[in-house]
Amino acid sequence: MRAADADILILPGLGGSGLEHWQTRWAKKLSTARCVAQADFDAPRFPDWIESIEREIAAATRPVVLVTHSLGGIAALHVAARGSDKIAAGFLVAPPSERAIAELTAIDPAFLPIPRERLRFPALLVASSDDPNAEADFSRVLAQDIGAELVDAGAAGHINADSGHGPWPEGSLRFAGFLSKL
Rank of each mutant, 00 (worst) to 15 (best):
V36F: 06
D42I: 11
E51C: 08
G177P: 04
R174D: 12
A155C: 11
F121H: 07
A94G: 10
L124N: 06
A59K: 04
S163E: 01
T105I: 15
A148H: 00
L71F: 04
K181A: 15
T32P: 09
A94I: 01
S139G: 04
L125F: 08
A155I: 01
D5R: 06
V126D: 07
A134M: 02
A60T: 04
P132D: 02
L19K: 14
A89I: 03
V93I: 13
G15L: 10
S52W: 06
A94K: 12
A106E: 14
A88M: 02
L125I: 08
Q23F: 08
F111V: 00
A3D: 05
A155Y: 02
L30N: 10
A148G: 05
A81N: 07
S129E: 14
W22C: 07
G171A: 04
D137H: 06
T68M: 01
D108M: 10
R120Q: 14
S139F: 03
T61F: 02
Q23A: 05
R55Q: 15
A153E: 10
V141Q: 12
P167V: 13
L124E: 07
Q23R: 04
I53W: 00
G177K: 14
R82H: 02
F41C: 03
T68F: 00
I87A: 01
A134N: 04
E170R: 11
A6D: 09
V67I: 03
L77F: 01
E117L: 14
V141A: 13
H69E: 00
S31K: 14
E170Q: 15
A37C: 13
G171K: 00
Q144C: 14
D48K: 08
A134Q: 08
A110C: 06
G72I: 05
A76W: 11
D5P: 14
G177C: 11
I50D: 02
D7M: 01
G154I: 03
D40A: 06
G73E: 05
P132L: 03
D108T: 01
E56N: 04
I101L: 11
F91S: 06
A110S: 15
W26E: 15
S31Q: 06
L173C: 13
P63G: 02
L125H: 05
V151G: 11
G90T: 10
I53P: 05
P109E: 08
L125R: 11
T105F: 12
D162C: 09
A76N: 07
S84G: 05
L173K: 15
K28P: 09
S52I: 02
L150G: 00
A148E: 08
V93W: 09
G73F: 02
E170T: 07
D131K: 06
S139Y: 07
M1I: 14
R34F: 14
F178K: 11
D42F: 11
E103W: 09
E149Q: 11
I8K: 12
A110V: 11
A37I: 09
A88Q: 04
R120E: 09
E98T: 07
D85W: 00
D131C: 07
Q144N: 15
I146G: 07
H78T: 05
V151A: 11
L66T: 03
D130K: 03
D145K: 03
I87Q: 05
W168G: 09
G90Y: 10
